[in-house]
Simulated scan of single mutants.
Amino acid sequence: MALKDLSQGIKISISRSITTSFESYMKNINWDEDKFNLQSFVGEWREYINNHASWYSQVGDEIKADPAFHGELAEKINEVINKILSDKPTQAQMDEITTLQEELGEEYDYSCKLEAKYVLEKLKSELKKKQNN
């Protein structure tokens, strides 16, 4: 049995687990591409699927042990990460980031929608700290 043979729900859950883990991993390294390490990310993803992903318990042990399945998962991880990184920020995100950066006198680079989300959270947190001082 291959990845393509799994139910649509499980395939969607696999993609979602990769996205969730990638977002968490990138946040932990402050979206610093120089700190990105694929093995570290995959380790975090494995921990996530073992502890939090319902799909993992729905896949049989013989499938999990199949090297071909692991190869397909590696391809899926690359596919999902490439999709995330090529998903451009929305105009609303860019406008809000511009406004917050001007207000705070700071500038952050971002290139995808998920990174823009991270930058917005960071800027909003900084603005809140500034307002509370």
Rank of each mutant, 00 (worst) to 15 (best):
D34R: 07
N51Q: 10
E102N: 14
T98Y: 14
E102R: 13
A53E: 00
M26E: 04
E115R: 01
V42Y: 08
S125Y: 13
I63C: 05
G43D: 10
D5A: 08
L120S: 06
E75I: 15
I29K: 01
E79F: 10
S86A: 12
I81R: 01
H52S: 11
K129I: 01
K11C: 07
T99K: 15
N78F: 12
K88S: 12
S57E: 12
Y110R: 01
I12T: 12
S21G: 06
Y48H: 06
S54G: 08
E126Y: 07
T98C: 06
S86K: 09
K130Q: 14
E107F: 13
D95G: 03
Q8P: 01
A68T: 15
N51L: 15
L120W: 10
Y108A: 01
M94T: 11
L85K: 14
L123H: 06
L38W: 11
Y56V: 04
L114K: 01
E75K: 11
K130A: 14
G105E: 08
G60N: 15
E126C: 01
S17E: 05
G43T: 10
K128I: 15
V80E: 03
T99Q: 14
F36K: 02
L6F: 03
L3I: 14
Q39L: 14
K130S: 13
L114N: 09
A65S: 15
V80C: 02
L127I: 04
S21M: 04
K130T: 04
K122P: 02
S54N: 03
K35Q: 09
I10Q: 04
L123M: 06
N82E: 06
L127P: 00
L6E: 01
E47W: 14
D95K: 12
E23L: 07
I77V: 15
K4V: 12
D61P: 08
D109C: 06
K129C: 01
Y110M: 03
E102L: 13
D5K: 11
Y56E: 08
P67D: 03
E79N: 07
F36S: 04
K35L: 13
L3E: 05
D34Y: 05
K11R: 14
Q58M: 13
E44F: 05
L85D: 11
G9L: 09
F69H: 05
E106F: 10
I63A: 03
N30C: 04
I14F: 08
K88N: 07
E96S: 08
S54R: 05
D109W: 14
A92E: 15
Y118G: 04
F22T: 07
W31Y: 15
E62L: 10
D87L: 12
E79K: 09
F41Y: 06
Y108N: 05
D61T: 06
S40W: 12
G43L: 13
K128V: 15
W31T: 03
N50R: 10
F22Q: 00
I49V: 13
W55Q: 01
E107L: 02
V59K: 05
